[in-house]
């Protein structure tokens, strides 16, 4: 399952980059987090309650940053999430560029959903994953540049 998204931000690319690479900011924007813990500057552990409407599962999740490259403003975010009978492995490539006060945040997502929800929820699962990720970035960017 692959999808992508982008968002323009009313600030500098550097500001977006700095904000984004701080896991504390990400931690504050995790959707429906029951709990979270910033383990180090590249790792967050969280319990995320993800789903649609009332149909939600609690995923034990590890979110880790890798290949953080300040020069090109590229990084990878990997989410390993596990719930009862369901798992998700989500790899996100993040890139920031753009001029001052016209930064652009871009992300491409490669998600492997496995388990019962992937089987039964085929109609909705890609829309939901797409939305959850977009919400997280949206939340961060609106905090950075309201």
């Amino acid at each position: 399952m692959k999808f992508e998204g982008s968002r323009e931000v009313n600030t500098s690319a550097q500001a977006v980059w700095d904000f984004l690479t701080n896991p504390n900011n990400m931690a504050e924007c995790l959707p429906d987090a029951k709990s979270h813990e910033v383990v180090d500057d590249k790792t967050i552990k969280a319990q995320l309650k993800v789903g649609v409407g009332f149909i939600k599962e609690v995923f034990d999740s590890t979110i880790s940053y890798s290949e953080v490259t300040p020069d090109s403003k590229d990084m990878k975010i990997k989410i390993d999430a596990k719930a009862k009978a369901n798992t998700a492995t989500i790899n996100i490539d993040v890139h920031v560029d753009g001029a001052d006060s016209a930064a652009k945040l871009q992300w491409t997502v490669d998600a492997v959903m496995a388990g019962r929800l992937a089987s039964i929820g085929q109609r909705y699962i890609s829309k939901v994953s797409d939305k959850v990720i977009e919400q997280a970035f949206e939340c961060m960017m609106s905090k950075l540049a309201p």
Partner: peptide, 14 residues
């Protein structure tokens, strides 16, 4: 099955 090998027809709904 989908490309990840998930069976998409695993109950009588599908």
């Amino acid at each position: 099955y989908d490309e990840d090998g998930i069976l998409l027809t695993s109950n009588f709904w599908d």
